[in-house]
């Protein structure tokens, strides 16, 4: 089989997310300036970078919560940026976990997990409940199924949000800073669930500030700054031994927040 370099999409079933020349502007502000990225089946990709670097926007473009200004995105070789695409169906293939959980406060943990199963997938309530309970058990919250979100801690809410996304039986999962809104002592439970998911072979794209998690779980780390991918590679390379000065400067600030920048440090991006 001959594969030409320009073939879009690749048609390769192992390429779950394909992003070509993605641009996104908010008014005059160009947040993404031409992103090319492919995420393979079973791969865990962590996207790191300073705030305002466009990493969350990139993730939100993948399931079209943000409409790209330019460029094409394929999910399992189907173009989601096609104006005629069945976006609702393509979104069911992608689980999304938000920084602020976004659980439905008027529904119990269980109902949060079942509502899309019964309403979108037209599943019977009994079958939906069965699946939802499985996933609530998976995140360690089987005993809180009847609790309303506001009665749960932040870490528990985020784990319910993960169970809600998993209940749709997605092909891949998108995480948008899933631990950034959590108290430090609750971060571990959520990361543990994500670690298990990764070990189970789930395809994951994770925007995160948790360097230790990225280093341990990621197959590939992407460093973004100023709307472009500055550097990518294995966690050992990007976090352990970055080649780009912008990456080094960012990691210095993240890993050693008390460090005082000197003129020698040459900060390419505005200080956090």
């Amino acid at each position: 089989m001959s594969v030409t370099a320009a073939r879009i999409p690749t048609g390769n079933r192992e390429d779950e997310i394909q992003i070509y020349n993605l641009h996104k502007s908010f008014g005059d502000l160009e947040v993404l300036k031409g992103i090319d990225l492919t995420v393979h089946r079973g791969e865990v990709v962590c996207v790191i970078g300073p705030s305002g670097s466009g990493k969350s926007t990139l993730l939100r473009c993948v399931n079209l919560l943000e409409t790209p200004t330019q460029g094409r995105i394929f999910i399992l070789n189907e173009e989601i940026t096609d104006p005629d695409a069945d976006i609702d169906r393509l979104r069911t293939l992608m689980g999304m976990v938000f920084q602020s959980f976004n659980l439905f406060p008027h529904l119990t943990a269980l109902e949060n997990c079942t509502i899309a199963l019964t309403q979108v997938k037209k599943m019977s309530p009994a079958r939906a409940k069965e699946i939802a309970m499985q996933n609530l058990h998976l995140v360690g919250l089987g005993d809180r199924a009847d609790s309303y979100p506001l009665k749960l801690s932040g870490g528990q809410q985020q784990r319910v949000a993960i169970a809600r996304a998993l209940s749709m039986d997605p092909e891949l999962m998108l995480f948008d800073e899933p631990t950034s809104a959590l108290d430090p002592e609750l971060v571990g439970d959520v990361l543990a669930v994500m670690r298990d998911l990764a070990a189970d072979g789930m395809t994951m794209m994770v925007v995160t500030h948790e360097m230790a998690f990225a280093r341990e779980v990621a197959d590939r780390v992407i460093f973004m700054d100023g709307g472009v991918i500055v550097e990518q590679g294995s966690p050992e390379d990007v976090i352990g031994n970055p080649t780009e000065e912008r990456t080094r400067s960012f990691l210095r600030r993240v890993l050693d927040p008390t460090h005082v920048e000197t003129p020698d440090d040459h900060a390419a991006s505005p200080p956090a």
Partner: peptide, 15 residues
């Protein structure tokens, strides 16, 4: 109602 509610619903495939 926070914008995130609609985003969460839409990301679950709801119209």
């Amino acid at each position: 109602v926070p914008k995130g509610q609609v985003e969460a619903a839409r990301s679950l495939g709801m119209s």
